[in-house]
């Protein structure tokens, strides 16, 4: 396995796509803090530090999936997979070596963005980079878990779908779908338990605070009431379990993390769910790959 990793990392180091993505992620980080500086200069308050510092988590699943499709797909399309198997490397080791490589590529993207956030952020907004962060250590940990699950899914597809272009396409489509599903799950979980209901006396109607904006001329009264969109019981449990295994849900929660809209995201369920998902996805991938007829 050490030999396979050595070969994979040497290839990763030479990969233009890898360095292009590193440069792109770094540039994104610089741009995010530049826009933040422009916004603060224009009077917008800088409240949520995580949405800048962990902004790459919103798209890291898509870029990891895309990279995995190209990196592993090339092994199939150029036939290099045969060179590994025909000299006696077991299929499980080949699979795991590729998983570790794609994982490291994902972590490297995270590191590139973080480097950009630290350097460009410090230069452009100073200490506010750190002051506005919310539970950074836990957010980093959840980010890493999210990258692990994203990489496991991407490697599964790349190793099972032999056609490189199909693998890339499926990877990208699925990662976008997962992003939408993650956003939906997170939206449900992040609903506050209480919300404000507003009674507009001029028209005799109630409206919830999240529904509309109200003009000052209207005669209205604010009431604190339970949020009908707040998930409870079994429905909340389902959302929590789905969120625990969906890497995109975790990734978005890291990027959007705010003190006042918190749910129990750093729970044991999240950690267990992610690890179970990685083991199950990779285990099934190895089983399929071991039985697969290769050309």
């Amino acid at each position: 396995m050490r030999n396979l990793l050595s070969a994979n990392f040497a290839r990763l180091w030479r990969s233009r796509l890898f360095w292009f993505m590193e440069a792109g992620v770094f540039a994104w980080g610089v741009l995010a803090y530049y826009l933040l500086k422009v916004n603060t200069r224009n009077g917008y308050p800088f409240l949520n530090g995580n949405s800048y510092f962990f902004n790459e988590m919103t798209f890291i699943g898509v870029t990891t999936a895309c990279f995995s499709g190209f990196f592993i797909g090339t092994e199939y399309s150029d036939g290099a997979m045969r060179n590994k198997l025909s000299v006696g490397h077991s299929r499980m080791k080949v699979y795991l070596a590729n998983l570790v490589t794609i994982l490291c590529a994902g972590f490297a993207q995270f590191a590139a963005y973080t480097l950009a956030a630290v350097t460009a952020g410090t230069m452009l907004v100073g200490d506010m980079v750190w002051n506005r962060l919310y539970r950074p250590a836990e957010t980093v940990a959840i980010s890493f878990l999210s990258i692990c699950t994203s990489a496991a899914i991407a490697v599964w597809i790349s190793m099972v779908v032999i056609d490189k272009s199909k693998a890339v396409l499926i990877n990208v489509m699925l990662s976008i779908l997962l992003l939408a599903a993650g956003a939906s799950a997170l939206k449900g979980l992040m609903q506050p338990e209480m919300t404000q209901r507003i009674y507009i006396s001029s028209i005799g109607e109630y409206k919830y605070a999240y529904e509309d904006s109200f003009s000052d001329e209207e005669d209205w009264v604010i009431e604190e009431v339970p949020n009908p969109k707040y998930l409870v019981g079994m429905e909340r449990k389902v959302y929590e379990y789905v969120s625990a295994v969906l890497p995109t849900s975790q990734a978005l929660s890291c990027a959007l993390n705010e003190d006042d809209n918190d749910f129990n995201r750093f729970s044991g369920l999240q950690i267990f769910g992610t690890l179970a998902a990685v083991v199950l996805i990779s285990g099934s991938g190895i089983l399929i790959f071991r039985k697969k007829d290769l050309k």
Binding site: R11, T74, D78, G79, A80, M81, R82, N83, S86, V87, G88, H89, S90, K295
Partner: peptide, 18 residues
Amino acid sequence: IDRCRRRMGAVVETPSVY
């Protein structure tokens, strides 16, 4: 058998090269 395959080289169909 995996160790035995170390003693073997093969070019299957098209050459396996990057």
